[in-house]
């Protein structure tokens, strides 16, 4: 399957960078790093995402650009360029706030750089010092996966077929008693909310955090897990069937 640059840019912004929201919520050290800077940064990617990364009082919010005044405006002339920025092999063009840009992401100890590097290291780790670190990795991967479903569904040329067939309503994804996210289908697109919303029409729940890790890492077979009850699915199954078709495509963008 071919990687679509535009889709990858959306995944990089909302699923990868977007997961910083939860990283600083779960990890005290990360929250401390985020607390060093209160700043609103716009990433404006031509033919890709146009969004805001907001650091405020130790919290991070990643949302679409809404017209507000920003401290830093970073421009990429195409999706490929932005994907290189995320890979650390290019820098965006600072349209506004050059010095603040350098402070935000221009150095190894800049808050954005520290947070994204550390989060990526945790999510890519194969060995962990303790259960806490392992569980953090799983939870972050879960939220990246959930956001990835929305972005891949909205943008990937093949996944869009499935996204369009998902009926309007809420699809609740979760690791039982650990963490939840809700995919909201409305106005012809999917958005992710990183919490359990009421009024779900379809539900997919990993029974344990270990099962979630095994499935997200591709070490467990999802169909076998459904069969054995380790992955509980209920509600509007056609909605889930189409979400699963998108989910099949998500890993190639999150690798």
């Amino acid at each position: 399957m071919a990687i679509d640059s535009k889709t990858l840019a959306f995944v990089n912004f909302y699923a990868a960078i977007g997961t910083l929201e939860k990283f600083v919520e779960f990890d005290l050290e990360a929250a401390e790093v985020a607390r060093k800077q209160n700043i609103t940064v716009r990433f404006n990617v031509k033919g890709g995402p146009d969004g805001l990364v907001i650091f405020k009082d130790g919290k991070v919010t990643v949302i679409p650009y809404d017209g507000r005044k920003v401290d830093v405006n970073l421009y990429c002339n195409n999706a490929d360029k932005f994907n290189k920025v995320v890979d650390g092999t290019a820098m965006p063009l600072p349209v506004k706030g050059l010095i603040k840009t350098l402070n935000f992401m221009g150095k190894k100890d800049s808050p954005f750089t520290v947070l994204t590097d550390r989060m990526a290291a945790i999510m890519r780790a194969k060995e962990f010092q303790n259960d806490e670190e392992r569980n953090l990795c799983t939870k972050l991967s879960f939220y990246a996966m959930a956001a990835g479903i929305a972005e891949v569904g909205n943008n990937d040329p093949i996944a869009r077929y499935a996204m369009e067939r998902v009926l309007d309503g809420n699809i609740v994804l979760g690791i039982k008693d650990v963490c939840y996210a809700t995919l909201v289908k409305k106005d012809g697109k999917l958005t992710v909310v990183r919490e359990k919303l009421p009024g779900g029409r379809a539900f997919m729940t990993f029974n344990t955090i270990e099962v979630a890790k095994g499935l997200i890492d591709g070490e467990l077979d999802s169909m076998a897990c459904v069969s054995s009850g380790l992955l509980d699915t209920r509600g509007h199954m056609l909605m889930l069937e189409n979400i699963n078709k998108i989910l099949n495509i998500v890993p190639k963008y999150l690798q």
Partner: peptide, 16 residues
């Protein structure tokens, strides 16, 4: 385990 329409992964045996 059991593939296809006779299996629980097909979506007609809920909860499995």
């Amino acid at each position: 385990g059991v593939y296809g329409h006779l299996g629980p992964a097909e979506g007609c045996m809920i909860p499995s």
